[in-house]
């Protein structure tokens, strides 16, 4: 997808992965370079740790920061208990890590770090490799919990109650397919939402810049509306960033419910 002719702004460039220090680290035949993607994963982790440490005062009456951190843990534990039941508390560490990692990565990718010269923001969650790995981890946990608790009885998940005997083979196949599609839909949803949002923002930003470069007349009819639209889309993307993190965590807890309680 090449940039428009005459424009040097490539909406896809923001997704390009390149080693931060320009050097490739090849370990055992694999390229494990510390890339901009890895850098932003570390930034996500670091900011999350800072946020959490601020809420670790463990006071009986929480301050503002502690209340904010407890709000997030309470949100995740509430989501798990309402979906899975009291047993859902076991999954708080994983689902909380998942939710917060995606949320922080999404929001960090939207923040205007680009105004600092030499800094290029990067949205970790706009990469299928990352969202796919997270989806596979979630799916693997569902499988481990499901087979660990129910053994081969876990396959009864694919035969809903009240299915006529004749229909069981067909329903089993259909349910199995829908079950196996879960990790793909989980990973693709986040990847597509983030990618689409960032491309849209970058295209609108290109309109703004190119309109200015083409003179005052174009600036009035192209730049101004694009800029207004961009403000709205940015707010929408902030909402999407939170919603996609929520959807990922919510679907994970729904799938965990299947594994813990069957149907």
């Amino acid at each position: 997808m090449a940039a428009a002719e005459g424009s040097k702004i490539d909406p896809m460039h923001q997704f390009l992965i390149e080693p931060v220090l320009g050097s490739h680290w090849i370990v055992g035949g694999y390229d494990l370079s510390f890339t901009n993607s890895a850098l932003w994963m570390v930034v996500t982790l670091a900011s999350l740790v800072v946020f959490m440490v601020g809420g670790m005062k463990r006071e009986l009456v929480p301050g503002r920061w502690q209340a904010a951190v407890e709000g997030f843990t309470g949100f995740v534990s509430g989501m798990l208990t309402s979906n899975i039941g009291p047993e859902g508390k076991r999954f708080i560490p994983y689902v909380f890590s998942l939710f917060m990692f995606i949320l922080f990565a999404n929001i960090l990718g939207l923040l205007p770090f680009g105004v600092v010269p030499g800094v290029h923001p990067f949205t970790v969650t706009s990469h299928l490799t990352v969202t796919g790995v997270l989806a596979i981890i979630s799916f693997a946990i569902v499988l481990i919990v499901g087979f660990g608790r129910h053994g081969f009885h876990f396959f009864s998940l694919f035969v809903p109650h009240g299915t006529p005997v004749v229909m069981i083979p067909l329903i089993f196949v259909v349910e199995l397919m829908s079950f196996l599609v879960r990790p793909f839909s989980l990973g693709l949803r986040l990847f597509v939402a983030m990618t689409a949002g960032h491309i849209l923002l970058k295209v609108l930003a290109a309109f703004v810049i190119n309109g200015i470069n083409m003179g005052p007349g174009y600036a009035a009819i192209v730049t101004l509306p694009s800029f207004v639209l961009m403000i709205g889309i940015t707010l929408l993307e902030l909402l999407v960033a939170a919603i996609q993190a929520y959807v990922f965590a919510l679907l994970t807890s729904v799938y965990l419910n299947d594994a813990v309680n069957l149907h």
């Binding site: 694999y30 890339t35 993607s37 890895a38 994963m41 570390v42 890590s97 990692f101 490799t129 790995v133």
Partner: peptide, 10 residues
């Protein structure tokens, strides 16, 4: 690299 660093950070 993506998977390696994701597994480390996550």
């Amino acid at each position: 690299s993506q998977i390696f660093w994701l597994l480390i950070t996550f």
